[in-house]
Design a protein around this nucleic acid. Structure first.
Length: 481
RNA sequence: CGCGGGGUGGAGCAGCGGCAGCUCGCGUGGCUCAUAACCACGAGGUCGCAGGUUCGAGUCCUGCCCCCGCAACCA
């Protein structure tokens, strides 16, 4: 039995969860459930990233401690997992003592690649912040907020020798040991790495940002939050000594959004190489979601909470839309109209109705009983390949291909006619094929629509076959809202 | 010359050298097992623009136009 380890990124707790992260959770859940169904032992981890100046600031605004603030938001993320029926069996917080302690161990282990240097930048004492060269140039060397010239300030930082790992990372990518999907994203990162990686600053002076994990043996510095957050993928497994780490690393797939490729395809691999451990096998990068073709933004006021969608259409409809109608390799769009159309046409009419009519026929014509459990033998290679390639949209297209085939089959065979002709043998054959196909569809849908899959299975395995009292995807209830 | 993605019927997409395809929407017909569901057929495209290569180009090459990301310390 093999081990399967899948992760999502851990979102920063400076804001409420939004549908972009919901997409990520659902995708990772498909991978986890699919692996489990194949018989793998699965660790599926998600969590929250909780340190850094931004959090401390927000907490201060609300008059609570950073930890209290992080507790509140982190809980919302755990709630999101539950809402979406996501099967993660780990939830790591970067404020967990275990993470903090192991982060220190990792830092020590990477020591040969960490050196102290000074960061020189343009600083405005009014903003208490650094500005980039380009910004300073654009602003003509004067801070517009305070109308005073930027000062050149030197800050002591620890740096990580990212530059030392360019070649090794490229080699891992090119050899296929470290797969990045989709290919367009892989090309992007390859050209970025080829253009050269510079060493990165991985700590902050404690007097500037105190909400962080202390650098071992240097009370004046805390780890830069990103650096430490990336470590969650192995601290959650109990790196370095825990059995889980030994059994489950390298990760089978790491799921991230396209905004953080650099961190996961360059910095993180370099950190792993520095630690002398393997790179994840696969990095899958999903796109962004727009709402009615507009960027999600609070100022436009087009923010939609996952809960609004789930409340109205149910969790499986949410999962269905995000997995099939958000392209797996590109950015996608959400609109209520498209959701409703998908719900009515694809879930209610095609899937729900196919089950309904089949079970009704089994009940009416065969008195609800079939001697043998029907088995359908359809080719599912394309479905399997699609999931391997993280083409969840294609995988579902494939399922619907089989579903359409079933509806066509029913219309061609016309069981109602066979019943009138009293050809019982043929009738049993046809209805067996129908139910067998539905049973297979339930199997294929399991990673995507776990609830629906289970309901289908229960109905198909009932001692007396009959249509459900409550149809699979009722339409009236939805319409009335 | 910073890097990359994209522009194909009303909408969303596939095709990436050999008769322009899929889903939705629209129209017509069929069926009655079913959630006014299902099935069949049809209308609808000078494949961003202009050149070129080729017996043949959404598909390859060159130039141009238009959209959208990324551009390193903000996580």
């Amino acid at each position: 039995m093999s081990k399967y380890y899948v992760t999502t990124s851990i979102p920063y707790v400076n804001a409420e969860p939004h549908i972009g992260f919901a997409l990520e959770l659902v995708i990772a859940d498909v991978l986890a459930r699919y692996a489990a169904k194949q018989g793998d032992e699965v660790i599926f981890s998600t969590g929250t990233d909780e340190h850094g100046g931004k959090i401390a600031e927000k907490a201060a605004e609300k008059g609570v401690s950073p930890k209290e603030f992080a507790d509140q938001i982190s809980e919302r993320f755990q709630g999101l997992s539950e809402l979406l029926n996501v099967s993660n069996n780990r939830f790591i917080r970067t404020t967990d003592p275990g993470h903090e302690q192991r982060a220190a161990v990792i830092w020590e282990t990477m020591k040969k690649d960490i050196y102290k240097s000074s960061y020189i930048g343009w600083y405005c004492t009014g903003d208490e912040a650094f500005f980039t060269d380009t910004e300073v140039k654009e602003l003509g060397g004067v801070c517009p907020n305070h109308n005073r010239p930027f000062e050149k300030v030197e800050e002591e930082n620890y740096f990580f020798k990212l530059s030392a790992y360019e070649g090794k990372i490229l080699k891992a990518i090119n050899s296929g040991k470290f797969v990045i999907l989709p290919e367009t994203k892989r090309n992007e990162i390859v050209s970025l790495i080829k253009s050269g990686l510079e060493d990165i600053s991985v700590s902050r002076p404690k007097d500037k940002i105190s909400w962080g994990i202390p650098v071992p043996n240097d009370p004046d510095q805390v780890m830069y939050v990103w650096f430490e957050a990336l470590m969650n993928y192995i601290t959650v497994l109990g790196y370095p000594e825990n059995e889980d780490f030994k059994n489950y690393w390298p990760a089978s797939v790491q799921v991230i959004g396209k905004d953080i490729i650099r961190f996961h395809a360059a910095i993180w691999p370099a950190m792993l190489l520095s630690l002398g451990i393997e790179l994840p096998k696969k990095l899958y990068v999903h796109g962004f979601i727009t709402i009615d073709d507009k960027k999600i933004s609070k100022s436009i006021g087009n923010v939609i909470h996952p809960k609004d969608i789930v409340d109205k259409y149910g969790v499986d409809a949410f999962r269905y839309y995000f997995l099939r109608h958000i392209p797996s390799y590109e950015d996608g769009n959400f609109s209520w109209d498209r959701l409703e159309s998908a719900y009515n046409n694809e879930l209610a009419n095609e899937l729900g109705n196919a089950l309904q009519r089949s079970l009704t026929m089994a009940e009416k014509y065969l008195d609800g009983s079939l001697k043998d459990k029907p088995v359908a033998d359809h080719d599912t290679t394309r479905y399997t390949d699609a999931i391997e390639a993280c083409r969840f949209d294609r995988a579902l297209d494939e399922v619907w291909e089989h579903l359409r085939g079933l509806n066509q089959y029913i219309d061609e065979e016309k069981p109602w006619k066979i019943d009138k002709e009293k050809d019982n043998e043929h009738l049993v054959e046809v209805i067996s094929h129908m139910l067998g196909t539905l049973d297979m569809l339930a199997d294929l849908l399991l990673p995507f629509l776990p609830d629906t899959s289970k309901r289908m299975k229960d109905l198909l395995n009932a001692p007396k076959l009959a249509p459900p009292e409550q149809t699979l995807f009722p339409k009236a209830d939805v319409r009335k809202t």
